[in-house]
């Protein structure tokens, strides 16, 4: 009974990871990934590893989404300028 919270969070980790793999579009995948970062941080907390959980929160909640979304924007903008260059 005392481990119920660990079981719940482990199931959530498995479910979010599967959802992240099953999502195809990179920007939507980044949304699922940010959720998974938070779930992983909660897992580390219930396993009594707060230092690791802090690292995961610091990196996963804002930094990783920002890096991914900036890369997606660059790739999309590049595709757009190439299209315009081809048309004109």
């Amino acid at each position: 009974m005392a481990d119920a919270v660990i079981v719940v969070v482990l199931l959530l980790v498995a479910a979010t990871a599967t959802a992240a793999v099953a999502t195809r579009d990179p920007s939507r995948q980044a949304l699922v990934l940010s959720l998974q970062g938070v779930v992983l941080a909660v897992l580390f907390t219930v396993l009594q590893a707060p230092d690791v959980a802090l690292s995961q929160l610091a990196v996963g909640s804002a930094l990783t989404p920002l890096l991914i979304m900036l890369s997606v924007r660059k790739v999309r903008r590049r595709a757009r300028t190439t299209d315009e260059g081809g048309d004109g």
Binding site: S27, A30, L31, S34, V38, A41, T45, Q48, P50, A53, L54, L57, A58, S61, A62, P65, L66, M69, L70, V72, R73
Partner: peptide
């Protein structure tokens, strides 16, 4: 868990969670 120092985790998430949402809101 009777661990007051774990509150730091919540503090960090309260700070950075909305920032993450702002990242998505801005770039999408």
């Amino acid at each position: 868990y009777h661990r007051p120092s774990y509150v730091d985790l919540a503090l960090l998430l309260a700070l950075l969670g909305p920032v993450g949402t702002l990242v998505f809101a801005r770039l999408l």
